[in-house]
Amino acid sequence: MKVLVCIPCLMTGGTEIQTLNLVRALVTGGHKVLTVCYFEYASEMVSRFQQVGSEVICLSKDGSRIGGWKGIIFLYKGLRKILKQYRPEVAHVQYMAPGAIPILLLRLLGIPKIIATAHTPADIYSSLRLVHFVQRHCVRAFTCITELAERSFFGTSQLYTEQAQLKKRNHFTIYNALPAGISISKQAKKYNQPLTIGVVSRLETIKGMDLVVPAFAQVKASHTEMKLLVVGDGSLRKLMDEQVYEAKLEEAVEFTGQQPQEKLSNYYDRIDILLMPSRSEGFGLTAIEGMARGCVVVASRVGGLPEVVRDREVGLLHVPEQIGDLADKINELVEHPLLWKQYSIKATTYVQRFSLAQYIKLFNNLYNKI
């Protein structure tokens, strides 16, 4: 089939990585894929989509965002031109944004088979009336990235399986998948002193990065040999530098800056305890990447993280925004090596449910039914 994949922007976030997985899955299944980006884009990410076999069209040549009625007209004209030229049989809309307008426009333009994927829980929407209208009248299937997210939209949830029966309108959960560059480790990670605590993240408030150094300082007060590895960059880098200086931790903290996806496995392999103190998290791609490499994840109890990081099964959850509780959970792992080893070994088995192979199989099964 010819498939049109629609996405607001092609930058370097988790949504773009998962959309790249989707394109890879569809190309693997023999479909011809065109990806259309409405607004902002990074040349590197556009190249990644092209490398996995998708054509890419960026509607905004300079990457600027257009709002209001001008934005709707801009999208209508851009999508109409693409549909006339490409004639796709299926459109797959990512992110339900901006405001489900692309879905409504695609239906208006005559596309009968539309799949929508929501990458967040419903709590970001002031009203679900439009979402429910879209699900009932506009899309063939509505997929969510966690069951928690699906329940937040529709009150019920169902993990999609190859045995799933499609009705006229459907909603399912298909978990996000590991990126192609992150393999599941076949060897158990060794518990070596000194342990390294790490983060792999955009250094932003929403990711809770302002909590990392203060929590690390509390842990290091009792375990002086500990190290902190910070992989990523963002607006909080200066603040984190200041926190390190004020706590006199310069020799214990390493900042690497932003790293390409292909190199992340090397950094996960250096991290024993991976922190995700997010204030909001739709899924938690970093968590499954770390677990694939044997890291034990300590994450905040928000969004999709409790579903992805099973508390006291493969990792630990802490009270959101509570530095003391975050430090306590880290200390628990540091002081109980057997517990850390148990979680690390279990994580590499558990994370197979998020494998790229499983993701490819499920989405192609869904497309075949549609």
Results as ranks from 00 to 15, higher is better:
Leu4Gln: 02
Ile7Lys: 00
Pro8His: 02
Leu10Asn: 03
Gly13Pro: 00
Gly14Lys: 00
Glu16Leu: 05
Thr19Asp: 08
Ala25Phe: 02
Gly30Asn: 05
Leu34Tyr: 01
Cys37Tyr: 01
Tyr38Gln: 07
Phe39Met: 05
Ser43Lys: 08
Arg48Thr: 00
Gln50Thr: 12
Glu55Leu: 12
Glu55Phe: 06
Cys58Gly: 06
Leu59Gln: 06
Ser60Tyr: 04
Lys61Ile: 14
Gly63Ala: 01
Trp69Asn: 07
Ile73Gln: 14
Phe74Gly: 09
Phe74Thr: 14
Lys77Cys: 12
Gly78Asn: 07
Leu83Lys: 06
Arg87Glu: 13
Pro88Asn: 08
Val90Ala: 01
Tyr95His: 15
Met96Asn: 12
Met96Asp: 14
Ala97Thr: 10
Gly99Ala: 15
Leu104Gly: 03
Leu104His: 06
Leu108Met: 12
Ile111Gly: 00
Pro112Gly: 00
His119Asn: 08
Pro121Ala: 12
Asp123Pro: 00
Asp123Asn: 11
Ser127Arg: 03
Arg129Phe: 12
Leu130Ile: 11
Leu130Phe: 11
Phe133Trp: 07
Ile145Lys: 11
Thr146Pro: 00
Arg151Asn: 06
Arg151Trp: 08
Ser152Leu: 10
Thr156Met: 09
Leu159Val: 13
Ala164Tyr: 04
Leu166Phe: 05
Lys167Tyr: 09
Arg169Tyr: 11
Arg169Leu: 01
Ile174Gln: 02
Ile182Met: 06
Lys186Ser: 10
Gln187Lys: 13
Lys190His: 08
Lys190Gln: 13
Tyr191Thr: 00
Tyr191Asp: 05
Pro194Lys: 05
Ile197Asn: 03
Gly198Arg: 06
Val200Met: 04
Ser201Thr: 01
Ile206Met: 13
Lys207Trp: 09
Gln218Val: 13
Ser222Val: 04
Ser222Lys: 12
Glu225Asn: 10
Lys227Phe: 04
Leu228His: 04
Leu229Val: 03
Val230Tyr: 06
Lys238Thr: 11
Met240Asn: 04
Asp241Thr: 15
Asp241Ile: 14
Glu246Ile: 10
Leu249Gln: 01
Glu251Thr: 13
Glu254Arg: 08
Gly257Phe: 02
Gly257Trp: 01
Lys263Tyr: 03
Tyr267Thr: 02
Tyr267Trp: 15
Ile271Lys: 12
Ile273Lys: 09
Leu274Phe: 09
Leu275Ile: 01
Ser278Leu: 06
Phe283Gly: 08
Leu285Gln: 14
Met291Pro: 15
Arg293Val: 11
Gly294Ala: 08
Cys295Leu: 09
Cys295Met: 09
Val297Tyr: 05
Ala299Ile: 11
Arg301Tyr: 07
Pro306Gln: 02
Pro306Ala: 07
Val308Asp: 09
Val308Ile: 11
Arg312Thr: 08
Glu313Asn: 11
Val314Asn: 07
Gly315Cys: 07
Gly315Lys: 09
Leu317Gly: 05
Glu321Cys: 11
Gly324Glu: 11
Asp325Asn: 15
Ala327Asn: 09
Asp328Ser: 14
Glu332Ser: 13
Leu339His: 10
Lys341Tyr: 13
Ala347Phe: 14
Thr348Leu: 11
Tyr350Phe: 15
Val351Phe: 05
Arg353Trp: 07
Phe354Cys: 04
Leu356Phe: 08
Leu356Gly: 13
Lys361His: 14
Asn365Ile: 08
Leu366Ala: 10
Tyr367Glu: 10
Ile370Leu: 15
